[in-house]
Design a protein around this nucleic acid. Structure first.
Lengths: 408, 408
DNA sequence: TTGAAAGCGTTACCAA
DNA sequence: TTGGTAACGCTTTCAA
């Protein structure tokens, strides 16, 4: 009582009794949770210490009252289930239980099923902290991300899935204007991650050396100690331009994405793609940006120009959709008067109101590639090429068609 | 040698030598890092074992060779600095060093400065896993977030800062379409967080019981075991409408935010605010959404209507800016012909091209409030009210002015 | 004020 | 195959 009076003023972590969603409050004892008084060290809990070895009261050592009462029926209410609990319930040692949980070879199928049953019954979930602390590899992959919008969010989703498949967990750290990349990395490093994935914002030189596997997603980087996973902008742009040229377009404009690394790459790819079709003279770049508003303004500029092109390749779906909206507002038919191509094949492109032809990068596959890279390197596999370039595809929908105006 | 041949196939966590950004590779030894052979268990290290107790060789116990060689000069290269290292360098016990690092009272200023100096020299950073594992409170606050865009990102930034001020760390978990709230919470729970902040997406009933402090940000929730930190939509809307009415507007429309919880609240607040000014008959709600495209379309609908209002209150800055863009495109002067008010006072509102009058919720203050709540509850402080409602302010810029059309 | 030692919940080693 | 036990890096208790 003396010992615990200050250390447990309220439930906190020590009394973590969450709803069934969490799945780690054993069904058998859940009903004891709600109204229960935190009985650690209380007189009432002492009465349950029947199995407790005869220790002289006040013998000067810190008695693990709580540990001693950890028999199935006597666990402190809400106390989280540990491997120890599982092992005891299954009647095996902790080591055995550990092997079973980690699906390591060794235990007999008999042992295995007993342990598994016990774990399920108790709602056991391993403690990631203890796990990563104990093992030489933390099985934690750090992820830095910025305000990258939907696409980064999709990447995140993919990363979670891929990491889980490899038995890794993700720890995220946001990079904000106030909180630079360095700080984000430091706070991640305090968790001792095994590998790092950087989603953004795109920086020219990631602040990491080659001591730990690092993968950068979505943009290219010169530092050759990091892996790069990206979709080929060149290929994507050439798919888009090819498609339009095949339909008969020549005057194809590009609503660009501003000054970001990705925008620059796509702009250059556009120029090149046009050149390859001998359309160098028809190059028309309208400076824009990454969001719908930038797209709106760029589309406005286009409308103000003397000679409206017959097709437009936008930087992304947001800007493309904005352009389509504006065109609609102005009574300019898409694709009748002008064809529009977006990028990312996002929900916007798939939205029936827009139904945009769009260059599709598959974020989940990119994520999978990045995780596989990292995991492989963590396992000591030597990989030569530092760059994974996925080929995008062109999803053709109803925003592109043959040009209205005949080719002069 | 035998023991370690398999355990260190490649650097991994065990050889975490990062760049100076990380600040935990001691300057004095950094030059030893790159080409160094992993000397664990090598003969040379044995010569430093002077403090090693006389243990018979091969006595059947696993000897901590590496621990024994942890004198300043013999640390394994790249091995991360521990409290042990700091303590040894400062010539004190680990317990002392711990107290100093945690800024607990006890150590003399002499001890304190020695330890601090050692920590700095070695570039020490505490291991969050070990720290949270050892203490009854993990000092970890879980945060779930969704694709909430810029505003959520600003909240995140504020949360980081506020948590750090209280000595807490954040662990993030994304809620995506594929990865529900439940899964996000489970993965967080494996880190044994002390408190939880939920940023989104807004759900009617957070999947948590009252066993751990939970704060929900930005939307209201009926469950009275969670704290709610939000900005008053009622107040914000009434500021906006008041401002417009004072300028002489009567026909004030609302570009709404769709069907989200927040959008509903603002829509209702709009109706009420109009009613308070006896403008119930002038209520005009244009259904929209949360992003610029929705704003664009809503503004388009507005334009198509017979009788353009003289002012518009939008759901947020994105939709407001989209409307402004469209109006500009159509030659409708803002604020000459129509006044526009946004919400969030984001970078868009502050952008000189738009210069929007906007309802400002201060995300950093909201974040601070949420963290303070959580921390207080973690410390066992009883708090009565479960809701913190911050009053927004109206930032007046150049998108609002007196109405062009006189009141009939 | 300081230090020794026990513990947190795991993993990984060893010998049986 | 199994179980005992030493780590992991820290916090916390208790005695000096």
């Amino acid at each position: 009582m003396r010992h615990y009076s200050t250390s447990l003023p309220n439930p906190r972590q020590a009394c973590l009794c969450l709803r069934p969603v969490f799945g780690f409050e054993p069904p058998e004892v859940r009903e004891r949770c709600p109204g229960d008084v935190d009985g650690v060290g209380s007189a009432s809990s002492m009465s349950t210490g029947s199995r407790r070895p005869p220790v002289a009261a006040g013998d000067g050592k810190r008695i693990r009252d709580d540990a001693l009462m950890l028999h199935d029926r006597d666990r402190a209410p809400g106390r989280r289930v540990t491997l120890e609990d599982v092992a005891r319930r299954a009647g095996v040692s902790r080591a055995m239980a550990s092997l079973v949980i980690r699906e390591e070879p060794g235990p007999t199928s008999m042992t295995r099923s007993r342990v598994l049953a016990a774990a399920r019954a108790l709602g056991y979930r391993p403690d990631r902290r203890a796990r990563s602390l104990a093992s030489p590899t933390s099985r934690l992959i750090g992820v830095t991300f910025g305000g990258g919008g939907r696409f980064h969010f999709d990447l995140l989703e993919g990363l979670y899935a891929a990491a889980a498949d490899h038995g890794y967990d993700l720890i995220l750290s946001a990079v904000t204007p106030e909180r630079g990349e360095q700080q984000a990395l430091e706070s991640l490093a305090d968790f001792r991650f095994d590998g790092l994935v950087m989603l953004g914002p795109p920086v020219a030189e990631p602040g990491m050396a080659g001591s730990i596997p690092v993968a950068v997603m979505g943009w290219s980087v010169k530092d050759d100690s990091v892996d790069v996973v990206r979709t080929s902008d060149e290929h994507g742009m050439s798919l888009a331009v090819d498609h339009l040229v095949q339909l008969g377009h020549r005057r194809i404009a590009h609503l660009d994405g501003g000054s970001g690394l990705v925008a620059v790459a796509r702009r250059e790819a556009y120029v090149e793609a046009m050149g390859e079709h001998g359309l160098g003279d028809d190059v028309l770049i309208v400076s824009g940006g990454e969001d719908s508003l930038a797209g709106l303004r760029a589309a406005g500029k286009l409308l103000a120009s003397a000679h409206l092109p017959t097709a437009v390749v936008a930087f992304n779906d947001d800007t493309a959709a904005a352009a389509v909206s504006l065109f609609a507002q102005e009574g300019i038919d898409v694709p009748g008067r002008i064809s529009v191509i977006g990028w990312d094949d996002s929900h916007l492109a798939q939205n029936p109101d827009f139904d945009l032809t769009s260059v599709a990068q598959r974020p989940h596959e990119m994520a999978r590639a990045a995780i596989e890279r990292i995991v492989a390197r963590c396992d000591g596999v030597e990989i030569e090429e530092r760059e994974v370039v996925l080929e995008p595809t062109l999803v053709i929908r109803s925003s592109t068609a043959q040009p209205f105006v005949a080719i002069p």
